[in-house]
């Protein structure tokens, strides 16, 4: 009897609720993110489906939803106001939507290092540097995630820090690469000390140091582009 009960429990854990059929999945994948956030509370099977990575991918590839792409601009003219961003149509540059940064505090600013699949990778607040933290921000779901700190401390002496951010589809994983040079950037000469290169993984929320020879400076710490699985 006990055995029967436990195997039944196991089954209900594996199949917590019948997934909606192909048809319902197809229909839901066409809805805007606002509706999906809300419809997670319709029933268990919808809730599970909408969180499912396969469904999220299907939704991101839904052409009927994403006919347009947008440019994101940071409005920082008035630092006393809540810092926010504006989405602009990439064809007409017309204002599409205002976005409010969830952590905003007066006089504090953030700096965006990269963007991919609608997720921004940023540093906040930019000053003082000692209290700066790294975040992933998805303006569509209004969710924000604080990345754990790298175990490699920033030296007090002059240094140069570079980030790259991207999505690895094979692993369904968001990653950050951090390169720490122990000297100021130099446009002509290679670094005299080997830089420390680390990779952050969102799934494990951890940093891993990687051994790689980097005999040149990546000078710009901004203006990063992510395309076809590589950060440039």
């Amino acid at each position: 009897m006990e055995n029967k009960e436990s195997s039944f429990l196991l089954l209900t854990m594996i199949f917590p609720a019948d997934p909606p059929g192909d048809e319902m999945t197809n229909i839901l994948s066409r809805l805007p993110i606002e509706d999906l956030m809300k419809f997670r509370s319709v029933c268990k099977s919808w809730s599970n489906l909408i969180r499912d990575p396969c469904f999220i991918n299907m939704h991101m590839n839904q052409r009927s939803l994403y006919k347009e792409s947008y440019l994101i601009g940071k409005d920082s003219l008035d630092v006393t106001e809540n810092e926010c961003c504006t989405l602009y149509s990439d064809e007409t540059f017309a204002e599409h939507k205002k976005l409010e940064f969830p952590l905003c505090e007066p006089t504090k600013s953030f700096e965006v290092f990269g963007c991919c699949n609608g997720v921004l990778f940023l540093l906040y607040p930019t000053t003082p540097r000692s209290s700066s933290k790294l975040y992933f921000w998805n303006p569509a779901t209004k969710m924000i995630k604080n990345l754990c700190r790298s175990p490699v401390q920033l030296p007090d002496v002059s240094n140069h820090l570079v980030f790259g951010f991207g999505y690895v589809p094979q692993l369904d994983e968001y990653k950050v690469v951090r390169i720490l040079y122990h000297e100021e950037r130099n446009l002509t000469d290679p670094p005299t000390l080997p830089p420390v290169v680390e990779i952050y993984s969102l799934k494990t929320n951890s940093w891993t140091k990687i051994e790689i020879e980097l005999s040149y400076f990546i000078t710009s710490h901004m203006a990063k582009t992510f395309l076809d699985g590589s950060a440039y």
Binding site: A17, E23, N26, I27, L28, R30, L31, P32, D35, K38, F39, S41, V42, C43, K44, W46, S64
Partner: peptide, 25 residues
Amino acid sequence: CQSAADRLKNKSVRAVREMLKITND
């Protein structure tokens, strides 16, 4: 499917449950 999605757009959770006869579990 697009027509069905258009009908669900902006609906409240209550309305969706009633339209599709879904029991909240």
